[in-house]
Design a protein around this nucleic acid. Sequence first.
DNA 1: CTAGGGTTAG
Length: 691
Amino acid sequence: MTFLHLKISKSFPLLFFNRARSFSSEPPLNKPLTEKAFFKSNTKDGLISRLCIDGRFKEAIDILCEQQRLTKAVQLLTHINRPSASIYSTLIQHCLQQRALDQGKLVHAHTRLSGFEPGLFLCNRFIDLYAKCGSLLDAQEVFDEMAERDLCSWNTMISGYTKVGKLGEARKLFDEMPERDNFSWTAMISGYVHHEMPKEALELFRMMQTHDNSKSNKFTVSSVLAASAALQSLRMGKEIHGYIMRTGLDSDEVVWSALSDMYGKCGSIDEARRIFDKMVNRDVVTWTAMIGRYFEDGKKEEGLALFSELMNSGIRPNEFTFAGVLNACAGHAAENLGKQVHAYMTRIGFDPVSFAASALVHMYSKCGNTANANKVFKGMPCPDLVSWTSLIVGYAQNGQPDEALQLFESLLKSGTRPDHVTFVGVLSACAHAGFVDKGLEYFHSIKEKHGLTYTADHYACAVDLLARAGRFEEAENIINEMPMQPDKFLWASVIGGCRIHGNVKLAKRAAEALFELEPENPATYVTLANIYATAGMWSEVTNVRKKMDERGIIKTPGLSWIEIKREMHVFLVGDKSHPRYNEIDHYLCELSKRMREEGYVPDTNFVLHDVEEEQKEQNLSYHSEKLAVVFGIVSTPSGTPIKVFKNLRTCVDCHNAIKYISKISNRRIIVRDSNRFHCFEDGKCSCLDYW
DNA sequence: CTAGGGTTAG
């Protein structure tokens, strides 16, 4: 190991890199710079050379680390006669900060080559480095070879395993360790919380309180508060709240923040706000959580008010905040608001590789603006899987199945690996487009080509494809052969297909399964009744209706809304409360006449009630989507596209009627129902009557 | 040296 005793000469820089090159046959070093590039790269390099010539390597390494030039700092190691523990420690510290696994391994190799005994402290740092980089095998090796271990060694291993989701391994160590402190407990508890195992987290918390002398601290209680929030267990949350007050752990802002969020997630949003208001130093995390709770609770106004308060507070919203607000915009199809947020983000700057960026793609997709979604997507240097999937789904729901599938093919070409959600998007694109066989091909490729395991959703999608096409026998084969119980999504697809093709027998089986799985969902009753009505089986319709009454199930009222001049106008079925109702009614009558002349025949089968023909027709013309569409037409200049949103699936008659309306009024009419977008133009719909 | 609260795709 001659390099360790190398004498530094005046021609140091050149020599330095030559040595580095020759050493690279051992552990791989990064490519050395040429001498010229070295001098060009940084003005402090002269100083570093000087320090090295004087043998002051520690200082040189410090400077290099500060400049984040780890590779060179590690290379310098080869010139030091006996590196001190503090030099190794500095280097590892920086490797840790930069998550530089390769450089860390080099430093580790150096300690071995130079015969340096790392000691407890340094070994723990190596474990931490390997664990943080997800290289648990290396971490375990260091851990196993250690002559003595302290609590920190164990705790670092445990948190390393929990970080990569190996809760079982972590728990094994946790159970094996000779003694535990609150780090051990908290690492294990928070590991459970982060991997959606809140029950286990709370169980461990109980154990901690009864079986061990370790005291929980602010870290522990924040974690268990998150666990109660995940379980929506207000009882548990309140209990912990009491514990926090008793033990004086309430002096920490993070604990307060977690407490507020727990109340919000458990449905006590006012209590959450009370705690939020009491806090003195609210950081952006606290704000984000509170804003998010309002949106989640459907309290858009409060959420927005708080968001603008945040913008004026001097605290900079971050990607989490934006993602939350944008997600709310997506859910409410509030594209204008989303655009404003987008503009604000652009003004203050945002990371194009972040949750916020993918939330933008999601928002535009959900609002039916695939052009903008695509624009944002194209602006991302390296789109993540969520953005890919959002856009694919966006195309699928917007009647652009070819674009959806094309995008999926580019995804494959880009080297990004699709996951199970991506395939749900791809399969639903095929279903929306009626590409049955192509969809089945993709379905088979999930396992065969991509090596993924089928989820219940994939089976539901495959069945959806077949049922929509009326290929019930194949659908039933899949149901009978799938390795898990069919879930409600699958049966809902089946009954949907039965509705299109009038398959009463299978509809009955699906409905029975659905009554078991989600007896309170009114959609099942309504669809079943409609299927019976179509078949003219009126006594069965009455039975279903009776069953609904007995079980106290109320049909979800159809609700449509339209944004005109930044104002939302909401319409219910048969809603006469709008201030401009007369105008709407008048135009609707006029339209009806024109529509009939064009050949429109009201389809009255899809009405739940068994009533006289004439009255049925009357019911239909006042469905909320028609009211909203007509209101859109009478309140905008001719030629303006109309964009309406509905909370339920659009009914067959409305779908048909709006086709005629688009032709007569010469408008582009976009209806986003609970399932997808319908883009009506000149008497045709983008869904090709397939939804 | 090891540990905490907020956020996305069907």
